[in-house]
Design a protein around this nucleic acid. Sequence first.
DNA 1: CATGTGACGCCTG
DNA 2: CCAGGCGCCACAT
Length: 116
Amino acid sequence: MEKRVTPFQNKVYGACREIPAGRVSTYAELARRVGCASPRAVGQALKCNPFAPEVPCHRVVASSRELGGFSGKSSGAEVARKKALLLEEGVGFEDTGKIKPDFVWKFSLAKCDSSA
DNA sequence: CATGTGACGCCTG
DNA sequence: CCAGGCGCCACAT
């Protein structure tokens, strides 16, 4: 049985899959990537993420560098697991528990060739 | 067709 | 800097 994912969700999953390991993206960036002005819609799609772990929804965090939510929980053990996964990928966290800006992935202007 | 909810973001005070 | 409020899009009922 296929998951009746709407074209919008499919787009979100596609963008999410573009996020390399050890990096994280924000709902806002992802939303803009899919052409949506509301990050909420992105969360709706990710929470339904039927293509996991093909679609690393755990690499998507809030614009404030916070973890955001996971598995349909805005906070809780699920979110803690998400943090653990990011740590496994090599993502660094601030002392405040936030993700380091250097680990936040950039979609378009992604030059990837960090010369410095 | 209308209403409610949701893994958020940005502005103002 | 912190706290509060409003806006937004998509989806389910």
